[in-house]
Design a protein around this nucleic acid. Structure first.
Length: 272
DNA sequence: ATGGTGGGCGCCCCA
C-alpha cells in the first residue's frame, strides 16, 4: 500500500477547514501535515477532520501564531514536539505513521520562522531568530541521529520559509537581498540538509532550471499572471527511503481556491 | 520606489 503525505501551510486551520476537505476530496492524502494553524489545541477542529476520515490527529498549537498539526488516516504515534530557540513557539511536531507489516516512518513537521523584512541579524531580531533556528536544526541533527532519522526512514517537511535554489524564486537576482532567498539562509538550509544527507525528492523529480513555487504573496494584484512565487515548502527524505518516493506534486491550483492560503500543498507518494 | 493583502486579536501583532 502506498503512503501519500501532504504538507501545507494553511494560514489558520479554523478558517480553512473547507480547504482541507477540498484537498481530501481531490487528492485524498493519507497524511496531512499543517503549519500556521494559529489555533490552541483545545480549539482544534478535530471533529471536522475526523469526518473526512482523518481519525488520528496530533495538534501542537498556541493562540494567535504559528502552530503545527498532523492529520492521518493511519494510526500515528506522537514522538515529540521539540522546542527550538527557547521561545515556547509551536514550530515542530514529530510523529510515527504506521505502515504495513509493522513498519513505520517518522515525520518531522516544521514551521521555520519567517524572519521579518530586514535581512540583517544585527538590527532585526526576527532574522537573527531564523538563523539561530537553522543552527539549532544542525545541532539537533547531530544530537541523536537514531531518534531524528531512524533506520526505518524519516521525512523532514513543512514550511521552511527559505527558497534554496535559484529556480525556486521568480528572480534570483532581485531576491538576493530579500528574506527567504539571501545567501546566509540558502547556505544555512543547505547545511541543514547535508547534516543528515536528506534528499530533496521534489527537486529530484522536478530538477532545475524548471521554476517551481509553493507560495505566492497575497499582495499581488493577480498572483497567477504575475507568477512571482517562491518555493518555501519542502519535503525531504532520508536516503534509505528516497527510492520509495515514486511521485511528487505541487498542487498549484489550490492557490486559486476560494479564500486560499498563500501556500499550496506539496504531496509525495511513498511505496512502503 | 513604494505599498500592496490577509489572519488573529483586541486598538497592533505577524506573515
Amino acid at each position: 500500500m502506498p503512503l501519500t503525505v501532504a504538507t501545507w501551510n494553511i494560514n489558520s486551520v479554523r478558517l480553512r477547514q473547507d480547504l482541507v476537505a477540498e484537498l481530501a476530496a481531490k487528492r485524498n492524502p493519507d497524511v496531512i501535515c499543517l503549519q500556521e494553524t494559529k489555533c490552541p489545541n483545545s480549539e482544534f477542529p478535530r471533529k471536522s477532520f475526523e469526518r473526512l476520515g482523518y481519525r488520528h490527529i496530533a495538534a501542537h498549537g498556541q493562540k494567535g501564531y504559528h502552530g503545527v498539526a498532523v492529520l492521518s488516516k493511519r494510526p500515528i504515534e506522537t514522538i515529540v514536539a521539540r522546542e527550538f530557540c527557547e521561545k515556547g513557539d509551536c514550530r515542530h511536531l514529530a510523529v510515527d505513521v504506521e505502515g504495513d507489516g509493522g513498519r513505520s516512518v517518522r515525520i518531522h513537521n516544521f514551521y521555520v520562522p519567517a524572519g521579518g523584512d530586514e535581512p540583517d541579524p544585527a538590527i532585526n531580531p526576527k532574522f537573527a531568530h531564523k538563523l539561530d533556528f537553522l543552527e539549532e536544526l544542525i545541532a539537533w541533527s547531530a544530537d541523536d541521529v537514531s531518534t531524528v532519522a531512524p533506520d526505518s526512514g524519516a521525512l523532514l517537511l513543512g514550511d521552511l520559509n527559505i527558497a534554496p535554489l535559484e529556480d525556486d524564486v521568480w528572480s534570483h537576482r532581485q531576491l538576493l537581498r530579500v528574506v527567504s532567498h539571501t545567501p546566509v539562509e540558502t547556505e544555512g538550509l543547505e547545511r541543514v540538509r547535508k547534516a543528515l544527507d536528506w534528499v530533496d525528492v521534489v527537486r529530484r523529480d522536478v530538477p532545475p532550471p524548471e521554476k517551481l513555487y509553493t507560495w505566492w504573496s497575497y499582495r499581488a494584484r493577480d498572483w497567477e499572471a504575475a507568477d512571482k512565487g517562491r518555493r518555501l515548502d519542502h519535503v525531504w527524505l532520508t536516503p534509505g527511503i528516497a527510492d520509495a518516493c515514486t511521485q511528487v506534486e505541487v498542487l498549484r491550483e489550490a492557490r486559486g481556491w476560494e479564500r486560499p492560503s498563500d501556500h499550496v500543498p506539496v504531496i509525495v507518494r511513498l511505496e512502503m
